[in-house]
């Protein structure tokens, strides 16, 4: 049986890297007593798959992992078992027993949404909001994307599924500027677009360079493409309907 788990990452744990989060969950599952399945072979490992890695420093309420279990106590019970062994900084938000044949979390990822804040003291160009929208509304946004070894030109527009200015989203938070940016970005393996890359590409067109560590990135949700027979959401709660995107836990 495959189970999908949604969790948040916040507070000081934003400084824990992806590999360490994986190790953390391996140990947490052992502490929890959940009957996880193991691979065969001389050194068996837990059957576990994480959705999309989160950069160090980012927070999230839309992280996912799949585990395979040999016995299933129920969605609520499993959630409680795991939540009981968490530390401050990671919280279990939701659990779903997956229908058989569902692709694993990592293979399912299609997009991720983010809310980005600017650290207080960042002096952004005065009309950046309008110009960001204009940047986004272009028909095509050619940029150079650097990978580890290569550089290639891509059309950034194709990777941005949605972009909005969230006016006053952070009005109650002292450490950041009041206006934020919402983005829905391609997060497929190999095509992933980082929110900071979008903003850096944009500010470059204004001849403005963001100071280091100016962005506070929070991942809201990770999405998959809904299957043909899966129900859609009502238009209001669905982010961008034409792409058939639904959260990784869906149809519960």
């Amino acid at each position: 049986m495959k189970v999908r788990i949604r969790f948040s990452k916040y507070g000081v744990l934003r400084f824990i890297g992806h590999l360490d989060v994986m190790r953390y969950f391996q140990k947490a599952i052992r502490r929890s007593g959940i009957a996880i399945a193991y691979s065969e072979g001389f050194s068996p490992h837990q059957i576990m798959s994480f959705a999309a890695p989160l950069s160090v420093g980012h927070t999230s309420e839309g992280e996912y992992l799949d585990i395979q279990v040999t016995s299933f106590p129920g969605e609520e019970a499993l959630k409680d078992m795991l939540e009981a062994v968490m530390v401050e900084g990671i919280s279990i938000l939701d659990v779903q027993l997956l229908p058989s044949g569902e692709k694993n979390a990592m293979a399912s990822v299609a997009a991720a949404s983010y809310l980005i804040a600017f650290r207080q003291g960042t002096s952004l160009p005065s009309d950046w909001q309008e110009r960001l929208l204009a940047f986004y509304n272009q028909a095509s946004i050619p940029v150079v994307k650097k990978a580890k070894k290569s550089e290639r030109e891509i059309n950034l527009k194709e990777g941005i599924y949605g972009l909005e200015i969230r006016k006053g989203a952070f009005a109650d938070r002292e450490e950041v500027l009041p206006d934020g940016v919402y983005m829905l970005l391609n997060a497929r393996s190999g095509e992933n677009i980082k929110p900071a890359f979008v903003l850096e590409s944009f500010f470059k067109t204004l001849d403005y360079e963001l100071p280091p560590f100016a962005l506070l990135v929070h991942r809201l949700e990770t999405y998959k493409e809904r299957g043909e027979d899966e129900p859609g959401a009502d238009a209001a709660s669905r982010p961008y309907d034409t792409r058939k995107l639904v959260p990784l836990i869906w149809g519960k």
Partner: peptide, 26 residues
């Protein structure tokens, strides 16, 4: 929530910031 002694900017520029944050299991 625990407040850290080091600012984000510092933690994000050093190698392995998890060395300095505490909050581990147990």
């Amino acid at each position: 929530m625990r407040k850290l002694a080091l600012k984000d900017e510092i933690l994000l520029q050093v190698e392995k910031p998890a060395r300095y944050i505490g909050g581990e299991v147990n």
